[in-house]
């Protein structure tokens, strides 16, 4: 059973969270354009804001003693986390940055934005290493598309990106070659009749520890696209064959915003609609072992070393979940 053991309620919306191992602190990105340094388990909790972005902060990683954030203003910022000051600000994308992922050796990170390009950055120098362009800027119905998700394989050799219409691209991170494309079309709902627009998209990606499988999270087909009322959905793919192994459809509605592969072999997914949820996927039985509601939509989460406690960036709060 998942249980929220502590909440720090705020008026901001928190979109991303990263854990700094050395100092037992967290960094979260917020709707007020700030990155916050947070120590949620202190009493009283520490909550210090750092100014630098001009837009929702939607991606954050801690790499080799640095904090790197990404935002809807299209920029990446390297922070001096002790001083709370930006060290370097890079205009990274022409449109909103939707996600940021860190390589296993922390030497590079990858950002994705609504300019539909994935860019690979050197975490030390801040220099652009490579651009990966392979997602269409418009949907088949001629509307702007969005590049929502990025994940890097545990060996750092490949990375995956995913967009609004459910296209997942697998890339060779060294050469930039496109290795494979997968279409998770169920996660994109185009309503041609009632409302004549769309909702959905692949919102989260996660490689298996051996890199042979990929998980994609989002929401199934939606009847009334005014709301996040589609059933939560996680799809498990065999990357060698490019085939769907299994689609997990939750009883709870909303988007699966983040997935992690637990050391014990199961998968944890979090997200939500108006409220939030925590789901545990048992891959061996191809069933959702647990699905619990939480008070607020979860946009991102990280775990402690034992993966027994989770720290979640939510709408209007930071939550600690066990």
């Amino acid at each position: 059973m998942s249980k929220v053991i502590k909440e720090l309620q705020r008026r901001e919306i928190f979109f991303c969270i990263a854990r700094e191992l050395e100092n037992h602190q967290f960094f979260v990105g917020a709707s007020d354009g700030r990155v916050y340094r947070v120590m949620p388990e202190c009493e009283p909790p520490v909550f210090l804001g750092m100014d630098g972005h001009r837009g929702y902060v939607t991606g954050i990683v801690c790499a080799r003693g640095q904090v790197i954030s990404a935002a809807y203003d299209g920029s990446l910022i390297w922070w001096d986390s002790r001083e709370g000051q930006p060290r370097r600000k890079v205009p990274a994308h022409a449109r909103w940055i939707r996600g940021l992922a860190l390589s296993p050796d922390e030497s590079w990170c990858a950002s994705v934005g609504d300019d539909m390009v994935c860019r690979i950055w050197d975490t030390e120098s801040g220099l652009l290493r490579r651009e990966l362009a392979g997602h269409a800027p418009r949907t088949p119905q001629h509307f702007p598309s969005m590049l929502f998700a990025v994940a890097i394989a545990p060996d750092g050799q490949r990375l995956a990106t995913a967009d609004k219409v459910g296209k997942i691209n697998i890339w060779d991170s060294s050469s930039g070659a496109l290795l494979r494309s997968i279409q998770a079309e169920t996660m994109y709902t185009w309503d041609p009749k009632q409302r004549i627009h769309s909702i959905g998209g692949v919102r989260s990606l996660c490689f298996s520890p051996d890199g042979r499988q990929l998980l994609a999270g989002g929401m199934g087909q939606v009847g009334n696209i005014d709301h996040l009322e589609g059933k939560s959905r996680m799809e498990q793919y065999d990357l060698e064959r490019g085939e769907l192994i299994h689609a997990f459809e939750g009883e709870l509605k909303g988007l699966v915003e983040k997935l992690i592969w637990h050391p014990q072999g199961h998968v944890i997914g979090m997200g939500g609609d108006h409220g939030g949820f925590v789901q545990t996927y048992d891959l061996s039985s191809q069933a959702i072992a647990q699905q619990e509601k939480t008070p607020s939509h979860i946009h991102d989460f990280v775990s402690n070393d034992a993966a027994s406690r989770f720290y979640a960036a939510c709408h209007g709060r930071i939550a600690i979940i066990e």
Binding site: P144, M146, R195, I196, I199, D226, H227, L228, D273
Partner: peptide, 17 residues
């Protein structure tokens, strides 16, 4: 031009519409 009733995902809906 219907339908703008964006109770969920207002910003994605308005980005489209």
């Amino acid at each position: 031009r219907a339908w703008w009733d964006s109770h969920g995902q207002n910003f994605e809906t308005h980005l489209e519409l």
